[in-house]
């Protein structure tokens, strides 16, 4: 079972949910921080680094003696990473998406590919959590490539939680592709609602079942709830706007470590998400929350 935590709006509590879910799961779990431009799960997870892998991408390099300046490569490149005007192309590696197309279209075999470093992947063991994080090098723009590498390292035999980047752009799509369920974390504000709607459009496009977690309840208004009710989107959990949570967060503590009363709530959530995945035709889309916020299974009406 693969679950992704995404949000639309930044700063709604994706990492908080991801870390607390992982810490409360009884069995072995992988937590993968896919927010490679600003990974922050590590602030709440302290363990032993077992491996640091350098991630490279193949970038074009020109063998000038073979190049006749025909311009096929730069005409092909959708990302304008090459410019040709008579002589060998001028290359802009920072714009290259490493598709290899320029090498393929070159009839004179004048383009070879050379590895260029884009970032690293850390593997860290924290008790029963196998924690992977991608860290993109400063100035590099290929976040998607690093997210893809992170997902390749994922062991499909173990439950996995992916912490997605904020927004709805390509690195988020790369994170969500192939997951079984998405938790969308939002806050009950107009900004939270606006970006939640965008995120909902994205997960619907990707045809992935999803539910919503409303964080910082007490601020804003009821419009997020009204939207979810109207669209029959399950609200799986609500977390109050509690200053003590913010204080714990600022010290690198997880909610469940500091407030035992949250342990059960996260445990119920993780149990319901991962347990349901074992049922063949169950799936998490059958989960709904009732008015008091409890999760129940719409098939048999049982509270989970």
């Amino acid at each position: 079972m693969k679950i992704a935590i995404a949000s639309g709006k930044g700063g709604t509590g994706k990492t908080t949910i991801a870390v607390n879910l992982a810490k409360n799961l009884a069995q072995q779990v992988q937590l993968v921080d896919c927010d490679v431009e600003e990974p922050n799960c590590h602030l709440f997870l302290h363990g032993d680094k077992t491996e640091t892998e350098v991630v490279n991408l193949p970038m074009p390099e020109i063998i000038t003696s073979r190049c006749d300046g025909c311009g096929e490569c730069s005409d092909f490149c959708e990302f304008n990473a090459l410019a040709t005007f008579g002589g060998p192309p001028v290359i802009f590696p920072e714009l290259c998406h490493a598709c290899g197309g320029c090498r393929i279209v070159c009839t004179r075999k004048a383009i070879v590919e050379v590895d260029k470093r884009i970032g690293i992947i850390d593997s860290i063991n924290v008790d029963k959590i196998t924690f992977l994080q991608g860290v993109l090098d400063i100035g590099v723009q290929s976040a998607v490539a690093l997210v893809d590498k992170l997902k390749q390292k994922n062991d499909p035999s173990i439950h996995t939680i992916f912490d997605a980047p904020p927004g709805t752009s390509c690195p988020v799509v790369a994170t969500l592709q192939g997951v079984d369920y998405v938790l969308l974390v939002t806050e009950p504000t107009p900004f939270g609602l606006n970006d939640l709607k965008l995120a909902v459009l994205l997960v619907r496009e990707l045809k992935i079942p999803f539910g919503v977690i409303v964080n910082r309840m007490g601020i804003g208004d009821r419009r997020v709830h009204e939207f979810c009710e109207k669209d029959a989107i399950p609200i799986l959990m609500e977390i109050p706007d509690d200053r003590r949570i913010a204080e714990a967060y600022s010290k690198g503590h997880s909610i469940v470590d500091v407030f035992p009363e949250y342990q059960n709530r996260f445990k119920e959530l993780s149990d319901s998400l991962f347990k349901n995945s074992d049922k063949k035709n169950g799936g998490n889309s059958v989960l709904r929350s009732n008015k008091s916020g409890d999760l129940y299974n719409i098939k048999d009406q049982s509270i989970v």
Binding site: G71, S74, E78, F79, N80, A81, A83, T84, F85, G86, V90, F92, L95
Partner: peptide, 16 residues
């Protein structure tokens, strides 16, 4: 509507 590198492509166009 270029996703990126519009200046590079424009430069290539006027040079050609």
């Amino acid at each position: 509507g270029a996703v990126q590198g519009a200046g590079i492509n424009a430069a290539e166009t006027i040079i050609r």
